[in-house]
């Protein structure tokens, strides 16, 4: 496919995802926050289903040698960075997905959040490149290196290359773990509803 064709397909799929995210009120932040804070699981279930579909599709493509999977270095910088991102996402009330949606809806707070997400990433990338420790980009070689706190590439493709087992096997493992969490949430919701019905029967009208 030509580059323009790829861009067009990406734009089409991106638009569909944007429309679905806005209409369904899907929110990654709410998926994690509401489960802990309000014990409601609507978005958590949606996130788990999305992750299940993605896992199977993604590892399936790797197994048959199709697709262009990205390679990410995993290190302690990710763990720290994602923790900071998690705090920021709950304080801002949205991660980047919902911030784009809110910005499109005309929420100026979200426009500010989006603007400073990029400014913050840019400023941090400047500081990060100057120093060797904490790990600099030059340390991210994809190899395990404890001195620079890098764990190397960690994704289904490298697992497939290193072990010779098709990536779909690891995908199915992750699928069943996610499915078990999904079933546990459904059981918990059923229990909540049953408890509520018992309460309503016990309280006089």
């Amino acid at each position: 496919m030509s580059i323009i064709g790829e861009c067009f397909v990406a734009f089409l799929f991106g638009s569909i995802v944007g429309l679905l995210v806005q209409r369904s009120r899907f929110c990654n932040t709410a998926a994690l926050r509401d489960a802990m804070l309000f014990k409601t699981y609507r978005n958590t279930k949606a996130l788990l289903i999305a992750m299940m579909i993605l896992t199977i599709g993604f590892t399936g493509f790797i197994s048959i040698g199709e697709g262009k999977s990205m390679r990410f270095d995993v290190g302690f910088n990710q763990i720290i960075g994602l923790f900071i991102f998690g705090i920021g996402m709950v304080l801002a009330g949205a991660c980047t997905v919902s911030t784009w949606v809110k910005a499109g809806e005309g929420n100026f707070g979200a426009v500010w959040a989006l603007l400073f997400t990029f400014i913050g990433m840019f400023l941090f990338s400047l500081v990060w490149s100057f120093m060797y420790w904490p790990p600099a980009p030059s340390a991210m070689t994809g190899e395990f290196n404890l001195e620079t706190l890098q764990l190397g590439y960690a994704n289904a493709e490298t697992l497939q290359e290193n072990t010779g087992i098709p990536a779909i096997f690891f995908g199915l493992l992750q699928f069943f773990v996610l499915f078990a969490i999904y079933k546990a949430i459904l059981r918990k919701e059923n229990k909540q509803h049953n408890d509520q019905e018992i309460n309503q029967q016990n309280t006089p009208a």
Binding site: R25, A30, F38, K39, T40, R42, H193, Q196
Partner: peptide, 14 residues
């Protein structure tokens, strides 16, 4: 804000 309006009734259990 429509998101919050929809999120409030399920919270009532908790």
């Amino acid at each position: 804000n429509s998101t919050s309006v929809e999120a409030i009734p399920p919270m009532m259990l908790e």
